[in-house]
């Protein structure tokens, strides 16, 4: 092996990699934020007794979870323009990641609601509260604490999976990495740096998840 490490290249291009990391983080934050919004409604739909609401939310969740994110991205970026005209890559990326995250968050919310003791809903209803009052004031608030750890895991998963949008030329961390590696032929150094940057972003969240899980167990 006569490959000689030269991490100077990493130092030189670090600002560029950092730019990519920031976009990765931004995309993930927006997507998970939107995902929580979508997922809360769809998750509630998944425990609904209304057949139409239940079916629609189930179709959405199953479609997203049963198809590759890459295909979803192509569908949005190349498919939707057939009806709506061209979509900028950033918009396509945000739509895809948000809609994808929404389905996973919906399952987290559903599991959270279903993990609450049946007696809570019965107690609320026996006091004359409507189903939606019971949801809003009794069940949903109790799910908050329980869904923090799985939401953290969803954030980590999406942070990593967001690299898929590099295929539509969005210059997030992985795309920046491959551009620099292609130009400098310093693949080992660059991809090590990219990996470490990902790790740097995910580790604090992993810690947070672990902490939240410990707290929950104590209760």
């Amino acid at each position: 092996m006569d490959y000689i490490w030269d991490f100077n290249v990493v130092v030189r291009f670090f600002p560029v990699l950092l730019e990519g990391a920031v976009l990765t983080l931004e995309l993930t934050c927006i997507a998970v934020g939107m995902g929580i919004l979508i997922g809360t409604f769809v998750g509630i739909g998944r425990v609904s007794k209304n057949k139409l609401i239940f079916s629609l939310s189930s179709i959405y969740v199953n479609f997203i979870r049963g198809t590759p994110m890459l295909v979803q991205l192509y569908l949005v970026y190349f498919g939707l323009p057939a009806y709506f005209g061209p979509i900028p890559p950033l918009m396509a990326a945000i739509i895809t990641l948000s809609v994808n995250s929404g389905a996973y968050v919906a399952e987290i919310v559903r599991a959270g609601i279903q993990s609450i003791d049946r007696g809570q809903l019965e107690a609320a209803r026996s006091l004359g509260m409507t189903y939606s009052q019971a949801m809003r004031h009794v069940l949903i608030p109790q799910t908050f604490k329980r869904i923090i750890p799985p939401l953290g895991n969803e954030f980590i998963a999406l942070l990593k999976d967001s690299s898929i949008v590099s295929v539509i030329a969005l210059e997030e961390l992985v795309r920046k990495g491959s551009m620099i590696a292609g130009r400098t032929f310093r693949s080992f150094e660059i991809w090590t740096a990219v990996a470490l940057l990902f790790l740097f972003m995910t580790l604090p969240i992993t810690q947070l998840v672990n902490y939240a899980e410990r707290r929950l167990k104590q209760e």
Binding site: G119, Q120, E122, P141, Q142
Partner: peptide
Amino acid sequence: FQRFNLFPH
């Protein structure tokens, strides 16, 4: 109820 079912939050 037998198991009280107070709202813990």
